[in-house]
Computed example of a mutant assay.
Amino acid sequence: MKRPGPLFTLLAGLLLGLFMLSLNATTGSEAVSSTPKKKPPTAAASPAPTKTTTPPSPSPSRVSVPDASYAGRTDDDSSAVAVTVRDRKAIAYFCDGRAKESWLKGDVKDDGSMRLTGKNGDVLNGTLKEGKRISGTADVGGGHYGFTADKAKKPGGLYRATATVRGAKVDGGWIVLPGGKQVGIVTRDGDPQAAPVIDPETGAVTVDGQQLTARPATP
C-alpha cells in the first residue's frame, strides 16, 4: 500500500486552514453583533418661554351724574358761574354782571370731569363731586378764574331769554345764586349791559319795555 503523497498532505492542510479561518470569522461577527450599541445622549428639552402680559390700565371710576343745575361764584368773587347737566351733557354760563360773559358747552365724562368750550377759545374745566358741587377753573376773556358751584335748589340755577325787541336781537343770561341774588347780562345786537331782574318763579322780565320770559337753560 502506498503512502499518501506530499500533494495530498498539502491539500488536507489547506482545507483545514480554510475551515478554521471561516470558523473564526463567523465567531467574530457574532461577537461584534452581540455587543449592544450605546444610544447617543438625548438633549434636554428647553423650557417653553413664559409670556409676560401687561396688566390693563385701571379704568376711571364711574360716578353718578344726576340731572341738576349748579350755581356759585369765582374764587375772587368777581363773577358768577352756573352749570346745568342733562343726560351727561352740560351747558355753562360765566358772567360778571357788567360786560364779560361766556356760554360754554360739552360732555360730562364717566369720572365726573368736564371740559366745556365756548367762543374765542373760552374753556371751563370742572369736576362734579359727589353730585353736590362742581369745582374747577374758567378761562374767559383772557382771565383765569377758579370757581365752586353748589347744587342749586329751585328757583336757583341758570336762565336764558332770546328775542327780537324793537328790531334789535336780544340775548339775556341770568344766574340765580343760593339766597336769591341774581347776576346777568343782556346783549342787544352785541352790546352787553347789566340785565334787569327776572321773576325766578315765572321767568318774566321786561327788556326795553317788552316783556320776555327767561327759561331754564339746558344743553
Rank of each mutant, 00 (worst) to 15 (best):
P155W: 04
G157H: 03
V176F: 01
K181G: 02
G173K: 14
V176Q: 04
R188Q: 14
P178S: 12
G184L: 04
P192W: 10
D189M: 08
P192D: 05
P155T: 10
D191V: 15
D191G: 02
P178V: 03
G173Q: 11
A168R: 15
A161N: 04
V176E: 01
G180I: 05
G167R: 01
A168N: 14
D189Q: 07
D171R: 08
P192H: 07
G180L: 07
R160T: 00
P192N: 10
T187C: 09
A161I: 02
G157T: 07
G180P: 12
V186D: 02
G173V: 12
W174V: 10
V165T: 08
G180Y: 09
R188P: 00
P178H: 07
P192Q: 11
G156C: 11
T164S: 13
D189K: 06
V186W: 01
V176Y: 05
G172D: 03
G184A: 02
T162R: 12
G172W: 01
V183F: 08
G157S: 01
D171G: 00
G184R: 11
K169L: 12
T187I: 08
G167N: 05
G179V: 02
L158G: 04
G180D: 11
V183W: 10
I185G: 03
V165S: 07
T187G: 00
V170M: 14
I175Q: 08
T187R: 13
D191L: 14
W174Y: 14
L158Q: 02
R166D: 15
A161C: 07
G173R: 15
K169T: 15
R166T: 11
R166Q: 12
D189P: 11
A168M: 14
G190E: 10
R160C: 00
Y159H: 05
G157W: 04
G156Y: 01
R166I: 04
T162E: 15
R166L: 13
A168P: 00
V176H: 06
V165E: 03
A161D: 08
G156T: 05
L158C: 06
G179E: 10
T187M: 07
A163H: 08
G179R: 02
V186H: 05
G179L: 04
V186C: 12
D171L: 09
R188F: 15
P178D: 14
V183I: 15
L177I: 11
G179Q: 06
G167K: 03
W174S: 05
D191S: 15
V165R: 02
G180Q: 11
L158V: 04
G179N: 09
R188W: 06
V176S: 02
Y159M: 01
A161V: 01
V186K: 04
W174L: 06
G167C: 08
P155H: 07
T162Q: 13
K169A: 14
Y159V: 04
V170N: 01
P192T: 07
G184C: 06
G173L: 06
A161W: 03
T164R: 07
A161K: 00
G190K: 07
L158K: 11
A163E: 13
A163K: 05
D171Q: 08
R188T: 14
P155N: 05
V170H: 01
L177E: 12
G184F: 11
V176N: 09
G167D: 05
V170S: 09
V165L: 03
Q182C: 09
V176C: 02
K181I: 01
L158W: 09
G156K: 01
R160V: 00
